[in-house]
Design a protein around this nucleic acid. Sequence first.
DNA 1: CATGGGATTGACT
DNA 2: GTCAATCCCATGC
Length: 194
Amino acid sequence: MESGFYDRPVLAVARDLIGCTVTHAGASGAIVETEAYHAIEPACHAHVGLTARTRPLFGPPGRAYVYRSYGIHALLNAVSEAEGVGAAVLIRALEPLEGLELMRARRGLSDVHELCSGPGKLSQALRIGLEHNEGDLAAGAVRIGPRVAGSEIPAIVAGPRIGITRATELPWRFAVAGSRFVSRPRPRAGARPG
DNA sequence: CATGGGATTGACT
DNA sequence: GTCAATCCCATGC
């Protein structure tokens, strides 16, 4: 992925990341679900401005923003838009491609649909942690690569974001239509991508 | 310095 | 359907 890929409107990055691959620690998967966050709306951590926690969000695009959620889970984001804006794409679900047995061992599960069908789940399956915060997604340990050459661009549905209490009206969640690797609740088919 | 609230998940009724 | 686990950090006194 060229660095300019992330230096664009966060909604475009969120949609275009669908189908791209995430690789780390001997396992990889294709992105099937994302959400966009932008400092202009209150659900985004960057909405509070520049703090110790949000500094990566305002940094250069193409880096990781990894934070701890509910004291337990590490959630992976791709910092987007120009440096100083404060926007990122949350990677919410993957279709497992490589390292299935490693993922099963790390997750303590066997069902392939349960390995990466949620932002906390995929971090556990790929061993992504807070130490990857601010890492370079093109050249660092955790990498995001392009869609498999020759593969078709999947049909995408858009819907409201999950698990937030503010700005719930924005349809900034994107997912592969009909994919069983998407987290619950799955977005309703029929919606158009934004 | 004390407190409250999550961009979640899994177990349970 | 309900609910607890668990910790970083933003906020307020």
